[in-house]
Amino acid sequence: MEQQNRERKTLTDGEIGAIAHLYRSEAYRSTIWRTRLDTTTNWAVVTLGVALSITFSSPEASPLPLILVGILIIFFLLLEARRYRYFSVFRARARWLEQHFYAPMLEDGDLHMEENWQKVLADDYTKPRYHVGYWTSVGRRIRRNYLWILLIQTLAYAGKLIVHPTPVTSFQQAMTRADVGPLPGEAVIAIGVIYILSWSGIALWSEWSSAKRAKARGSRTAMG
């Protein structure tokens, strides 16, 4: 049997039909999980919009909602990163079939079974696993969407301190407006800077990590 598997260079018509249906199912599942990713992004955008409306509803309104909404945004980001790990599995399988099944078939009619791409796919079904780590997923979602959401949140908060209730006239006045209960404005601003730099750092690290993994594994030996 092992000798037959090594010598096998083609697929039967029935097997080709089964793989075509398999591709359809993987494309469908990746589409469904992509929709779930968009849902959490929409939640983050809506909650930020509500915080902006409350904060800028009047000059006397507190900038605190723009700080608190950051907690919700990060919650949605972490939830979306978990969903992205599932999405990446189905997307990688569909892309693998496109690259090694459909593209060779359309180009020269040869499925190049000798490259053992089918064994890589079979192994992924036999031993399913995530293709990316959790923090890599977090970084990818920050780069794709959440960096812009966090940027808008930061600029809106700074704008609120500068213009409401009257245009700021000194740095100390801005720090006073940033006070939150017993926390002085300087501490609040410092926490905000750490908040932005931390998530930006994760985004940059995930980009570097993904590039390193892609270079190390090559394009024809693994999915993800």
Rank of each mutant, 00 (worst) to 15 (best):
G70F: 02
R141A: 01
T47M: 10
F101K: 09
L150V: 09
R34A: 11
S137P: 00
E15R: 03
A94T: 04
A187C: 10
R36P: 02
R34C: 03
G49N: 09
L78R: 11
L64F: 07
L183M: 13
M175I: 02
S30C: 11
R143K: 10
I194L: 09
R177T: 07
A214E: 12
S25Y: 06
S200A: 15
A27Y: 05
R24N: 15
A216Y: 02
T12A: 02
V50I: 13
P59Q: 09
L22Y: 02
L197K: 13
L204C: 07
E207Q: 15
G17R: 15
E115I: 07
A122F: 03
L147M: 12
E60Y: 07
K9H: 05
E114P: 00
L11A: 02
V188K: 03
D108Y: 01
F75R: 15
R24Q: 13
Q3H: 08
W33N: 08
H100Q: 04
E60R: 13
P65A: 07
P128V: 10
T31C: 13
G139H: 05
V193P: 00
R177F: 00
I32W: 12
S200M: 09
V193R: 06
Q153F: 02
E2G: 01
E186L: 11
R29H: 14
F75W: 12
T126L: 14
E80D: 12
E7A: 13
S53N: 13
F171R: 08
R29L: 10
T31V: 12
T154W: 11
I189Y: 04
E7S: 07
V89N: 07
Y28K: 14
G139M: 05
I194R: 06
A44M: 03
L161Q: 08
G201P: 06
Q99E: 09
Q153K: 15
L151H: 05
T126E: 15
I74A: 04
S170M: 04
E7K: 03
T221G: 09
A190S: 10
V45Q: 08
Y23L: 13
Y195T: 07
Q172M: 11
W199N: 10
D110F: 07
T40G: 14
S219M: 13
A158D: 00
T169H: 11
Q99S: 11
L151M: 09
T12W: 00
A18F: 08
L97Y: 01
G218D: 00
F87P: 00
R95Q: 11
Q4P: 02
L150T: 02
R29C: 03
K9G: 00
P128E: 06
F101L: 02
W96I: 03
S53Q: 14
S30E: 13
P182L: 09
G192Y: 04
P59C: 08
S25M: 12
S219N: 14
Q172S: 15
S209L: 07
N145H: 11
I19S: 10
F87R: 11
Y23N: 10
G139F: 01
Y134H: 11
S25V: 11
